[in-house]
């Protein structure tokens, strides 16, 4: 029986109103410079984030470098323990889970990593890498296991003849396919993809984007797709969340975000992206933000964006934290003056 026709896939629901994963007020702080007396501060990489990922959708998570996207992805995939908050998946809170229970849970929840070079063990063959998840869960042995590995390799566009090769014998794009195959072989429901294409050559990126889309359709997968490239996110996502300095600034369906951004940061971000068309480029008026992202060790008071915001008004923006709330039907933004830029 093929993976595609398995009862798990058959019974999987695609309902883009239904939350598959709910993230509730999650924080992740990395302590730094803790002295003997316990003092020291913390990198507030993720600082109170709530949203949901709906069954069968792709939620794009965008933001500039260091804003906490990867950290959030890892906290959701339970690779970092959250400092506080809940990650509810299939009705269960994953955060307090430990040991064997958490390990079992991982079958349903997989991750694709950014760096196709660093995320594959150089001492294992491709067959071992893709077969390892099956081994870990005792899902298939011997011939059956190798059949599954063959099938998944083919599904991901890898030639099964290369089963016994080592990762370094493959190109970046092929390595990323290996990483995807490893995530897929357990037949998960939910996949966190942390910048899966940004380390690849331009001419290769489209191959991986298409593969991911295709797999989503065939296996009814739900993706959290992390990227800093807003064009790719637009191409792939049903909904988009924009993150800045550890917080979600805006979250809405893809169309509203791109056509009608409400948060000044989103607006600036979108206007900064060059378009591969000289005529449109000549017309584009980027909203140039001053300065760069402040340090997440002591983020600005009030609205975190106020140090760079072109429409900030004082003292309200520097004193009151704007809540992430619905502005127009289901379009959430965290700004006191949403839509005014």
């Amino acid at each position: 029986m093929t993976l595609e026709a398995s009862p798990e896939v058959e019974s999987r629901v695609v309902d883009k109103q239904l939350a598959l994963v709910s993230v509730e007020d999650v924080t992740k702080h990395f302590p730094i410079g803790a002295g003997l007396l316990g003092g020291g501060s913390a990198v507030r990489a993720v600082d109170g984030v709530s949203f949901e990922v709906r069954a069968g959708e792709t939620l794009g998570l965008v933001g500039e470098s260091g804003c906490g996207k990867s950290t959030l992805g890892r906290v959701i995939a339970q690779l970092h323990p959250a400092t506080s908050g809940k990650v509810i998946f299939q009705g269960q809170d994953l955060v307090p889970m430990r040991g064997e229970k958490l390990r079992r849970m991982r079958q349903e929840l997989q991750m694709i990593f950014q760096d196709p070079y660093a995320s594959l063990n150089p001492r294992m063959t491709v067959g071992e890498i893709i077969g390892e998840p099956l081994k870990n869960f005792g899902l298939a042995r011997g011939k059956e296991r190798s059949n599954r590995v063959h099938e998944v390799m083919r599904t991901c566009g890898l030639n099964p003849n290369f089963l016994n090769r080592y990762p370094h014998e493959f190109s970046g794009g092929q390595r990323q396919r290996i990483g995807i195959a490893r995530a897929l072989v357990l037949n998960p429901t939910f996949i966190v993809a942390d910048e899966p294409i940004s380390a690849l050559d331009v001419s290769i990126q489209a191959q991986i984007v298409n593969l991911m889309e295709d797999l989503q359709n065939r296996f009814k997968l739900t993706y959290l797709f992390i990227a800093h490239d807003l064009s790719v996110v637009r191409h792939l996502s049903d909904r988009v969340a924009v993150m800045y300095l550890g917080k979600i600034m805006e979250i809405a369906d893809s169309h509203s975000i791109y056509e009608n951004p409400l948060h000044p940061y989103t607006k600036a971000l979108l206007s900064s992206i060059p378009i591969p068309d000289p005529d449109l480029e000549a017309k584009r008026q980027p909203i140039l933000l001053q300065g760069e992202i402040p340090s997440p060790v002591n983020p600005p008071s009030g609205c975190r964006f106020h140090t760079r915001c072109p429409i900030a008004q004082f003292p309200i923006c520097s004193e009151q934290v704007p809540p992430l709330e619905s502005k127009v039907d289901g379009h959430l933004a965290a700004c006191h003056f949403a839509g005014q830029l």
């Binding site: 190109s171 794009g173 092929q174 050559d201 331009v202 001419s203 290769i204 990126q205 489209a206 191959q207 984007v209 298409n210 889309e213 490239d229 807003l230 064009s231 790719v232 637009r234 191409h235 792939l236 996502s237 893809s254 169309h255 791109y258 979108l270 992206i273 378009i275 591969p276 068309d277 449109l280």
Partner: peptide, 21 residues
């Protein structure tokens, strides 16, 4: 044609350049 563009909404498929450099 292989690049997703910000000025194009979600469309069916990107053109892939097969093979490797």
């Amino acid at each position: 044609r292989s690049m997703p563009r910000l000025d194009a909404a979600r469309h069916s498929k990107l053109l892939t350049i097969s093979g490797l450099p």
